[in-house]
Amino acid sequence: MKYSNPHIPEGINSTETNPLKEFLLLTSAVVVGVIIITAVIAMLVDSIAEYIPFEFEQTVARQVIEKLNKGNAEVDGYLQHLSDQIVPFMDLPEGVKIKLHYVNDDVVNAMATLGGHIILYRGLLEKLPNENALVMLLGHEIGHVKMRHPVKALGKGVIISLLMSAVLGESSDAVATVISDTSMLTMLGYSREQEQLSDEAGLHVMHAFYGHVKGATNLFEVLQQQNNEQVFKLPQFLNSHPDTGFRIKYLKQLAETKRWDQQGKINFVPDYILNILAEDKKVIAELQEPV
């Protein structure tokens, strides 16, 4: 018997394909798919959120708020009083109540969370040059509550992370990075949109409360200065908030189109509040001093 091994042509068991083409096709399919799914979830959650009872938010928030390291009660009272004054202008849905919390911390921030709770940090409060800027800040945060942004963000976050854990269990870390980053960037887009809506609400309440919008941009000038002090700046698309310069420009534009007076009387935060803030700052500074 004669045996032989002939020359076998190439390309039968493995086809010469362009891996880059396959890579680009599949990756863009994943990216587009994730954006669409995230957008659909966001839309669904946004439309369902109105039907989530506010009491549910309050129940969820209670445990977190109890653990909050609350600051001076007098500052709390002052903020609550100011908030109660502007709330009637904000047309809140029935049953929605706003509760202010002052926290003695250097963080230059404020936030609205579930159940109508708004947390203001000393770091931001002490930098605000006047009461008008504070009203803008409160209006912005109450705007978040009014539009149910905290519960919407929570809903989106929960559903998307559930979906992620289901999908990502199947794929490698690298693909997981692509999927979760795409979803995160899409969500940040929604977050910036929410911030802009709340800015509008803030400006609106300033006009309703004072009859003019002077001082509205003071809040953002504080944030901008804070931003300038940072060494490393994130590009716009990686940020949860719109660019501060853009926010100032947008508010000025909005005031112009609405023909709201941009000049008017500036009110100041009472001295006794400023004194408490200064005292609190000292206390924290002493605590942080190395022994």
């Binding site: 068991n13 493995s14 990756t27 794929s171 490698s172």
Partner: peptide
């Protein structure tokens, strides 16, 4: 390699031939 692995795990989402692994095994 990392690239082949990435392509293969993309394929695990969509299905289809994993060309990247075919040449490896060949």
């Amino acid at each position: 390699d990392y690239f082949k692995k990435f392509l293969a795990s993309l394929r695990s989402l969509f299905g289809g031939r994993i060309h990247a692994y075919e040449s490896l095994l060949d």
